[in-house]
Design a protein around this nucleic acid. Structure first.
Lengths: 324, 324
DNA sequence: CACTTCAGGACAGAACCTGTCCTGAAGGCT
DNA sequence: AGCCTTCAGGACAGGTTCTGTCCTGAAGTG
């Protein structure tokens, strides 16, 4: 009977909406006998959607994850949220194609009143156009790498250099990190006996994975900070080591870890190793520290700081002297 | 027969995956007669999921949006994308609760191999914790406002001021804008005869909506820029009008529109009206212009610029004089 | 006009569904 | 241990639905 099919969907919906349902409540909600509810639960199970049950006080039924994705029964608000979210997911490396497909699938069936709401919510949610996407990353590769991280299994993979050459690397993976537009793998490079960061889009894993390895102390600050330091500094065209007249922890608290590394000197001064894409950015951002500092090099930074000093001096030359 | 239910879900899945299916192909895919396919299509229709059809060459069936959300049949990759997207959607004002519910619903049934993939993809996708959420916005209010914008219908609403008072406003809505953690409505205020920006969380719409109105020239630069100018400047604790020794278009090209307004003076100088939360930020960011400028007030800014100048001068005092 | 496709009735035969009634079993609390 | 809560599932009668086959009708397109 068609009502059987409809009821199965409603049952699935109820089971998705909340964890535990006693059979008698389900029978009330579905308008059938408890025996029929038990039959329906069996039907869901035969369809591949596992329904667990427990007896006794506070017993009941609950839907759990099985081997297959069941149909997703969403209410109006949730459907809107999924539509919004799929738009956002389209910008995430590794899932953009699936997100586009999912979005198309959803929009095809979204009731018009919900589609209007999605349109409203999406309007100007991201007023600045997203950066162009990074290199395509095969989701299967990400999956393999993620599993190796979790299971602490040694990896062997072909790794393409930026010059096009390729070599085999052996590594003990620690974490995957999404930074900016790219995915990175932070791993212990077995041959180099040190931590390394690998671009995921340059990795071609070899199978099978290798033997398991014991956990290792992670890089200082964790994988994200490690990648951030390596990636940002790699991108900088201008670098400097600046003596700051303040304790290291004060300086560290004022900067984003991606901006630089702070090294203590004598407890009340420290060195900030930092950089930027332009010498002006570098010079100006030092001002954001709001702390005294000294720069002795590189020469072009010194020159620019002197020019900036002169500009700031001219800026206030016509202002009244002193102030209340 | 249980197979009827299963087949309906498979049919729904096929119809969601692609636009047009001739009946004979569906019959092959589902392993039934074409007559049964027609019965199944009728069953979907009775369940509230409209299936359109067309006859003749290139005819076939397609699923369209109806009054209700059908079950969403996602493949593995799409399910991962939805899970990722719902996490992202949880940060969007107006849908965070529904997104959390949707995410919980999905994770409850996501097969474990997909859950691991979601975990991998989400790892460090947003290394910086999101700002605390803005005021709750009723999605129904957003929906009403969005519909009024689309249909160009005059609105009447109760509007709470920041001091708690409330008054009735009459406006011709133009756009909804999400800026930072809040939603804004940009509308023509009928009584004030000018554009205004309204905080959506302070709006209580009155029904019914009013008469339609003809389209009006939008605010300069569009609604988002309009909100950006108004909102950023409202938040600034320190403001300044700075004379910049460069043409207005050069200066405008170097700043984010949210940072300030540029007014031409004489073709080769202009005034930048800008601001920041701290006097140091204001002072330092003027340096990012990389252009000569003059500041005559306010006094605390002048003082700080002089202090900054002295700091920059000290910074290079020990460096070698001159450079190649 | 010919070919493509969907729409849907009629029929025989097969299969399924439901509510009722009942026994059995497991979990938790006293 | 006993009692109460819940799920598990068989047996049965009665009723309903489903399927494939066959067919006519209709609409769209070239």
């Amino acid at each position: 009977m068609l009502e059987t099919s409809a009821r199965l969907l409603r049952l699935l919906s109820l089971l998705q909406a909340r964890r535990d349902w006693p059979g008698v409540i389900l029978a009330e909600r579905l308008g059938v006998s408890e025996r029929t509810v038990r039959r329906d639960v069996d039907r869901l199970r035969e369809l591949g959607y596992p329904v667990e049950s427990s007896r006794g006080t506070d017993g009941g039924y609950r839907l759990v994850a099985g081997a297959a994705m069941p149909p997703l029964l969403l209410d109006d608000e949730e459907a809107v949220a999924v539509a919004i979210g799929l738009r956002a997911a389209a910008g995430v490396a590794g899932v953009e194609e699936a997100a586009e497909r999912g979005a198309a699938k959803l929009e095809q069936v979204l009731p018009s009143r919900l589609r209007r709401r999605v349109g409203a919510l999406q309007a100007y949610t991201e007023p600045v156009p997203p950066d162009r996407p990074g290199p395509a990353v095969d989701p299967a590769v990400l999956s393999v790498l993620a599993a190796a991280c979790r299971d602490r299994e040694r990896l062997r993979f072909d790794y393409r250099g930026h010059d096009g050459s390729s070599g085999v690397r052996v590594a003990e993976p620690y974490r995957l990190v999404s930074w900016g537009r790219r995915w990175y793998l932070v791993a212990w490079d077995v041959d180099r006996d040190d931590w390394r960061t690998f671009r995921v889009d340059r990795i071609a894993p070899r199978t099978p994975t290798g033997p398991r390895f014991p956990p290792r102390d992670p890089p200082e600050g964790g994988a994200a900070a490690y990648v951030a330091r390596g990636v940002s500094s790699a991108a900088w065209r201008h670098r400097a080591r600046v003596l700051v007249h303040a304790p290291a922890e004060v300086v560290a608290a004022r900067i984003n870890p991606a901006v630089g590394v702070v090294e203590d000197v004598d407890g009340h001064t420290c060195v900030l190793a930092t950089g930027a894409d332009t010498v002006n950015s570098l010079a100006v951002h030092l001002g954001l520290l709001d702390l005294d500092f000294e720069v002795t090099g590189p020469p072009e930074l010194v020159d620019h700081l002197r020019a900036l000093t002169a500009r700031y001096a001219r800026a206030t030359a016509t202002a009244a002297q002193g102030s209340g």
